[in-house]
Computed example of a mutant assay.
Amino acid sequence: MAKICFLLADGYEDSEMKNPYEAMKEAGHEADVVGLEKGAELKGKKGTVSYTSDYFISEVKADDYDAVIIPGGSAPEALRVHEEVVQFVKQANDQGKVIAGICHGPQVMISADILEGVNATSYMGIRDDLKNAGSNYFDQEVVVDGNIITSRTPKDEPAFIKEILNKL
Score class of each variant (00 low, 15 high):
V98I: 15
A27K: 11
F56L: 13
E30W: 05
E83I: 00
I57R: 10
Y123A: 02
F138H: 15
R80H: 08
M24Q: 07
T153V: 15
S50H: 04
Q95D: 13
V86Q: 04
L7S: 03
S111R: 11
D128F: 06
V142R: 04
E26W: 00
E59N: 10
M1F: 04
K162Y: 11
I4E: 10
I99Y: 09
A159N: 13
G134A: 08
D94S: 13
G11S: 12
D66W: 09
V81K: 12
L42P: 00
G72V: 04
Y12C: 00
S53A: 05
L165A: 07
D64K: 11
I57T: 02
L168D: 06
Y51E: 13
I161A: 03
V68S: 11
V143L: 03
V33D: 01
S111H: 06
I149K: 06
P71R: 03
H29E: 07
A92L: 07
M109A: 02
N166G: 02
K18E: 13
R80G: 13
L36R: 04
Y65I: 10
P154C: 03
K90T: 00
G105H: 08
I70R: 04
S135T: 02
V86E: 03
I57P: 07
I110N: 01
K45Y: 10
F56H: 15
G28D: 08
I148M: 09
